[in-house]
Design a protein around this nucleic acid. Structure first.
Lengths: 242, 242
DNA sequence: TACGCTGCGAATGTATACATAAGGTGCCCC
DNA sequence: GGGGCACCTTATGTATACATTCGCAGCGTA
């Protein structure tokens, strides 16, 4: 328990294993054995089992036939489809927001976030961590605007996969200039999205949210078109199988 | 272990609890305690915990702050939103199927299912179990047509909730004649959906699948507009909170 | 009366020993 | 030589005892 601040052993094991899966240190298809993990972590099987069950819940593990667990394999197509799915779900959230109407406070909050992102852009160099945090807040707010717990839940579930999160690939610093241009486009989409919701234009809002997610998809595809060396610094892609 | 055919105690507990939640015997918000359940089932806490974890995975339980579990509450709006969500996901599956193209064997299988449903309609009285099975097969096939494991997985997850399954509310026999008319419409939508996919008309396919799901939504809403007595025979709705 | 503190109890967290089943390997028989 | 059976190994399944923590209630004090 030297380096861990987590309350319970199960939480520590959960964090440790999640990390190693997302890292790619545990390759897709690898079977995870309770005893081995328990020894490795210096704890008993019980908390390990709890951690494995939660990772299965997060869709990072598959349950094998015999009752065990194996690391889920993510192929390129899976990553692309997951991002597409996020677009579809956020699109639905946006459409519902437009159809059902959104409380003024939420709209104000959205506009405030947009304003803060604008402020970041006016600085000399862009504070990527700051942008990432604001962008995440914007997307979480969009999910809430749907006023549907069901939709919100699904979006949270998808976003938990790091390569599908709205802030994925922002940590790739290899194309700083291209990235800045991309962020400008994204910000325009944020603005248009709120405009559509305010005007109760459901179809437009849905379409904009989908297109907004496509930016992430283009990022993946361009990264994968590069030499392997250039992908090294992109942790979100470490989980990829091949 | 007298009445159970399940291999393990955990599976037996899982089935038992799932049943009671879907029944409505365990009301939404009810906290589930390991010790109490273990005593009730005559087993130890360990398999109970395993069952609870899996029910959380199925989205039938929420994890409470302290580390426990509580039965998830489903309000009418949640049911409606979940059906809407199924429509959105099946719409995405249909669109992807149209965009990516579908192997001839799958199309043949779809047409065969449609043919068999036609045959059911020509009988004197409609075999509802038979229809339900065929309808379920059609929807499962549609999910596969997307050729996306990610999408397929999500659809399976949603359909696991009985009130969101494509065959929900077919067991309501109170309006037999109206139902038959509904089934005719559904069958037309099945046909149009396959037609759209064959012709690579993505937007049309998506729109048709969404509208197809709306039938289930209309069913819920009409059932809820009735007197409580008429809703008694509809097991899919037993889980509703209020 | 209101606030807080303390102690008790009931819940989950954990370790461990044993049960059981499934899968693999090696030997033996055909 | 090949196939099948049996054993053994190794995995998960289960029970139970103990640890720990969190919350609540009751009492006390300001």
């Amino acid at each position: 328990m030297s380096d861990a601040k987590s309350a319970t052993h199960a939480q520590r094991a959960l964090i440790y294993l999640r990390q190693r899966i997302l890292n790619g240190q545990l390759a897709g298809g690898t079977r995870l054995f309770e005893v081995a993990l328990a020894e490795e972590l210096g704890i008993s099987r019980t908390p390990v089992r709890a951690a494995l069950a939660r990772l299965a819940e997060e869709a990072l593990l598959d349950r094998t036939s015999g009752g065990g667990f194996a690391v889920r394999s993510f192929a390129v197509r899976d990553v692309v489809d997951t991002i597409e799915l996020r677009g579809v779900l956020e699109g639905t959230a946006a459409r519902l927001a437009a159809e059902r109407g959104v409380p003024a406070e939420m709209l104000a909050e959205a506009r405030e976030i947009i304003r803060q992102i604008d402020r970041l852009f006016s600085a000399e160099t862009i504070d990527m961590d700051g942008y990432s945090a604001l962008n995440t807040r914007f997307h979480a707010l969009l999910a809430r605007m749907s006023q549907s717990d069901v939709i919100q839940r699904q979006i949270e579930r998808i976003i938990a996969l790091p390569f599908a999160s709205p802030s994925a690939f922002l940590d790739d610093h290899s194309h700083q200039l291209a990235l800045i241009k991309t962020l400008g486009t994204a910000q325009e989409q944020h603005r248009a999205l709120i405009d559509a919701i305010v005007n109760r234009e459901g179809a437009r809002a849905e379409s904009l949210a989908r297109e907004h997610a496509r930016a992430a998809r283009r990022n993946v595809e361009s990264l994968l078109g590069q030499e392997a060396a250039l992908r090294e610094g992109v942790p979100s892609l470490a989980i990829l199988s091949t």
